[in-house]
């Protein structure tokens, strides 16, 4: 596709997103805010799960850790001044704490592969969640407050709409930068065949750890902002199995390992569950499960994969999904 055209389209989308809250009501502003948050998570998960092929089933640990870090930083070390700018330091620090934690567990846990890595991450998220819930210092059981210093005259949904929008944009730009760099190609080589990549001189260990930490920092930052947006939360508001699973499902539906896949998948799933089915809360799981099964069976490469193989039928079925062009 034409490079200038893509750039132009991207600018148009960003402009439209900036102006949108002027027309739509608070409900849809909140839905789109949720979309920005979830798509940001999916993009961050995709850095490790999509590019390097390490599917984490416990990424919610970084959401929880980010949110709780921000709350404890503000209540124990704060305040950091007035106005929205006082949020900057707690959010950045929370992201860094998540990155630090990821760096510590990265070496042992990334020695596991495939399903074992996935379940080990699930285990990590459960252990950390239970500790936050049961050790009184963390106050996960009773919950913590995280007040947002809103700028004067701004509705909270508009404020978080722009904040999450900016974070999503940043995540996408980071993902594009990674994908186009040597680092990105190293991750793809790890996904395709880790042993061969190592043999050919790719520093697989280092690149895997870098991807893991980067993904953790992004998710932790989003988690901290999420903490601000809900204002009060307990362990199970932020350490949630369905967060971990949503990241995977969104990527899967759009196309794992592609740049646009996570965003498209999130948009479609949220549109179906939040808008079309908002009145049928008791069969949400049923529908989500059915969509997941149908996507895997009918379009194993997700929507992007299906589009590619439709455009280039010669490339052959699901195989096209694992390639990652622009």
């Amino acid at each position: 596709m034409n490079r200038a055209l893509v750039l132009l389209a991207a600018i148009a989308v960003v402009l439209a997103a900036v102006l949108l809250p002027l027309w739509i009501g608070p409900f849809y502003t909140r839905v789109i805010q949720l979309f920005f948050f979830s798509a940001g998570l999916a993009v961050a998960w995709n850095l490790l799960g999509g590019f390097a092929g390490y599917w984490s089933f416990g990424h919610t640990v970084f959401i929880g850790m980010g949110a709780f870090s921000a709350a404890h930083i503000v209540t124990r070390l704060g305040p950091f001044g007035d106005g929205p700018l006082s949020m900057v330091l707690p959010i950045l620090l929370s992201g860094l704490i998540c990155g630090l934690f990821a760096a510590i567990i990265a070496y042992p846990i990334l020695r596991l592969r495939g399903i074992y890595f996935a379940i080990a991450m699930l285990g990590v998220s459960q252990v950390v969640g239970e500790l936050v819930n049961n050790l009184s210092w963390f106050q996960g059981g009773v919950g913590v407050f995280l007040q947002t210093p809103l700028p004067a005259g701004t509705a909270p949904e508009d404020f978080f709409y722009y904040l999450f929008g900016a974070l999503l944009l940043a995540s996408i730009l980071i993902a594009v930068a990674v994908r186009k760099s040597r680092f990105g190609y190293a991750l793809l080589s790890i996904r395709e065949d880790e042993d061969t990549a190592m043999m050919l001189g790719v520093a697989t260990e280092r690149y895997k750890i870098m991807a893991f930490v980067l993904s953790a920092v992004l998710v932790g930052t989003l988690g901290a902002v999420y903490g601000y947006s809900v204002g009060y939360f307990t362990t199970y508001t932020v350490f949630r199995l369905d967060f971990s699973l949503n990241m995977i499902v969104f990527c899967l539906i759009g196309g794992i390992g592609t740049l646009a896949g996570p965003v498209i998948g999130t948009a479609i799933m949220l549109f179906i569950t939040q808008v079309l089915l908002s009145r049928f809360l008791d069969i949400h799981l049923l529908i989500t499960g059915a969509i997941v099964v149908a996507i895997i069976l009918l379009m194993p490469g997700g929507i992007i994969g299906a589009l590619r193989s439709w455009r280039r039928p010669a490339a052959g079925g699901g195989a096209a999904a694992t390639e990652t062009g622009s």
Binding site: I248, L252, L286, G289, V292
Partner: peptide
């Protein structure tokens, strides 16, 4: 992918 499919079926069955 079969991991995810069984997960999807589990969600449906639980519901």
């Amino acid at each position: 992918a079969s991991l995810v499919v069984t997960f999807g079926v589990a969600m449906m069955a639980r519901n």
